[in-house]
Design a protein around this nucleic acid. Structure first.
Lengths: 185, 185
DNA sequence: TGAGCTGATTCAATGAATGAACCTAGGATG
DNA sequence: CATCCTAGGTTCATTCATTGAATCAGCTCA
C-alpha cells in the first residue's frame, strides 16, 4: 500500500501560508530537485537517472511517481515491445529552470572551487545570468536555447555512462543519446 | 555529542559534480529554506522562528547551527543580561533571494489558488519578476528595497504573533518588531 | 532453455524528524 | 527568599523516510 492517493507526503508545511512552502511540498524532498535537473539535461529513463544520480532504486521509483502525479514529468511509452516508458519533463517542470539556475549559481559562487559547467545562450554564446537570462541579448532565454558546456573543474573520466555523455556540450531538454548497442573493441 | 565538526550532513550528493548538488547539500534539508525565507522576512529569534514555522525545537536548533556554520546566518548577542542571541542573515544568505523568489513564483503559478503575498520594488511599487528584478526599472532590486505586501489569499487572523505582524506590509531584512511587553486591554 | 535487459518491488537496517518533557540562567514579582 | 516567567535550548521515545541488497516480472534474443 504505497499509496498513490493524494499525499504529496513527507511534510506538512501545511500550516505555512506561503508559495515557497507550497513549492517545497512538491519539490522539497531529498533527491527531487536533482531528478528534475537531470530531466532538464535530457535524462529520461529510469536506468539513466539511476546510474547518474546514484539514487536508491526505491527512492527513484517513488520520486518519479510523485513528479508524474504532480505534472512535472510525463510518463510516456517510447516502445511497445518490450513495453518501455520514459519520463519527459513538462512545461511545469521546465518552469523550474530559473530556480535551478539561480541555485546552481549560488552553489558555485559560495561553495565551488572551479567552474563545473557553463550554461550559454546558443544564439550568442554568452553565459547566462542569475535566473537564466542572457546578459548580452537582455532577454529571457528559452530553455531549449541553452547549451550546457563542460568546464575545467569536471572530472575528465567519470564512471557512469551518462556523465560521460554530459562531458560534451549539449542542449538542454534534448534527450540523451542512447548508446547504440555498444560494440566495444 | 551532536557534532559541530564539519559534516554538512544529511546527504552525500557527494558523487555529484554539480553546483546544484553542492547547494542542496547546504540548504536542501527539510525546513532549511523556510528558515532562510523567514530570515529574509526579518525573523531573527529562536522563538519567533519556532512559532512562525511550527518546526520541532530540536530541528530548529540543528538548522540554526548548520546555517551559522555555513555562513548563511550570523549568531550575534543582542543583549547581555540576560544573555540573548539572534540569528541575522548574511550576504551569503541574502544571495539566495533570487532562488526563493523564483521558487515561490513557481509555487504560486502552479499550485496556488489566490495570491498570498506580493513582493514589490519600493521605489516604483512594481511587482517583482521571476528572480526578483523590477520589470519597470529593468534592474535587479536589492533585497532591502523590496516590500512584502499581503495579498487577498492570506488568512486574516493567524494564530501566531509573527504571522500577525507579517499581515502588514514590511520591508525585507528589516527586523521583526518585538511586541513591547504587551499590556492587553 | 536460458541469459540479459529494463523497470521496477520487497525487506531489514539505519538514520532523521517529531513532539513532549525537561533543563538552565537570569530577571521580575511578592 | 521563594516562586514564577521567559528565551533558548537538550533529551528521549516513537514514528517515518532513506538506504542498499536481493528479488521479481515481462519481454527479447541466441
Amino acid at each position: 500500500m504505497v499509496t498513490v492517493d493524494g499525499m504529496a507526503l513527507g511534510k506538512d508545511y501545511v500550516t505555512q501560508e506561503c508559495s515557497i512552502a507550497r513549492a517545497l511540498e512538491v519539490v522539497g524532498e531529498r533527491w527531487t530537485l536533482l531528478v528534475i535537473r537531470d530531466a532538464l539535461y535530457g535524462v529520461r529513463r529510469y536506468n539513466d537517472f539511476l546510474v547518474h544520480l546514484g539514487i536508491p532504486r526505491a527512492v527513484l521509483a517513488a520520486r518519479l511517481q510523485t513528479l508524474t502525479a504532480e505534472g512535472i514529468l510525463d510518463k510516456r511509452r517510447y516502445q511497445e515491445s518490450p513495453p518501455r516508458d520514459e519520463y519527459v519533463i513538462t512545461d511545469r517542470g521546465i518552469a523550474l529552470w530559473p530556480t535551478l539556475r539561480s541555485l546552481g549559481l549560488w552553489g558555485r559562487e559560495h561553495f565551488g572551487e572551479t567552474q563545473l559547467r557553463s550554461f550559454r545562450h546558443i544564439a550568442c554564446d554568452t553565459e547566462l545570468g542569475t535566473y537564466g537570462e542572457c546578459p548580452a541579448c537582455g532577454t529571457a532565454v528559452p530553455v531549449q536555447d541553452v547549451v550546457m558546456v563542460p568546464g575545467p573543474g569536471l572530472h575528465p573520466d567519470p564512471a557512469d555512462p551518462i556523465s560521460r555523455i554530459l562531458l560534451k556540450p549539449k542542449r538542454l531538454l534534448e534527450p540523451i543519446e542512447q548508446p547504440a548497442a555498444a560494440d566495444p573493441v
